[in-house]
Nucleic acid binder design. Structure first.
Lengths: 102, 102
DNA sequence: ACGATATGCAATGATTCTATTGCATGTCAA
DNA sequence: TTGACATGCAATAGAATCATTGCATATCGT
């Protein structure tokens, strides 16, 4: 994993809407764009447009956290946590493991 | 820790310059602004101005990751990894611990 | 007191993010 | 085949981010 990938992952995590998308994709994997939008509204959040969701999903895909496949006219989104785990190993855990007193 | 704090922490991690500041502050704690700038230049990165560093440090401070104290005219920056650990526990580890196959 | 040092504050500009709207395209089902 | 459905594409617009420059302030050493 190079620096740019690492950066894209951390940037992808910077937005709360994207973190919630990850939350939901883990709760129920392989959702369509439509489903993700619907849940987004259903959970009482400030309704965000379909295009906004699309753009967030694009970012997640570019970061390698989401893989897309098509089934007819529906776009299926699969979560991939491996890059997230790798990024955490590379940068985050290095700081958190030692020196738990600080 | 509330949602806004969590968000500030993830946003703080989104920038590579800030992550490098954290790296260095862990390597050598309690550095002054001047020291951080100097190292920033010394490590061959594209020289960033003092004000830019200041703004990054402000963000890190607002996220609770850096605490500031004064000693005369020098501003000392202490790293605090506790909020980082908490944020990782609240959001990240929840996803990473289970389902290591995905 | 004076000059050098460490930092603050304010204004600005460029770029990137987030979200929106309107219209187009392709697929399913009756 | 036609209409409803799921999504794409493009053009914004407003806000936030990242970095810069110039000047001001306060502290230290001599």
């Amino acid at each position: 994993m190079n620096d740019e990938q690492l950066d894209q992952i951390f940037k992808a995590l910077a937005d709360p809407t994207r973190r919630r998308i990850i939350d939901r994709l883990r709760k129920q994997p392989n959702q369509s764009l439509f489903q993700i939008c619907a849940l987004s509204v259903a959970e009482g959040e400030k309704a965000v447009s379909r295009q906004a969701i699309t753009q967030h999903l694009d970012m997640l895909e570019k970061a390698g956290l989401v893989h897309v496949s098509w089934s007819g006219r529906t776009k299926i989104h699969a979560l991939d946590l491996k890059p997230l785990r790798k990024a955490a190993d590379i940068w985050l855990h290095r700081h958190l493991q030692e020196g738990k007193d600080r």
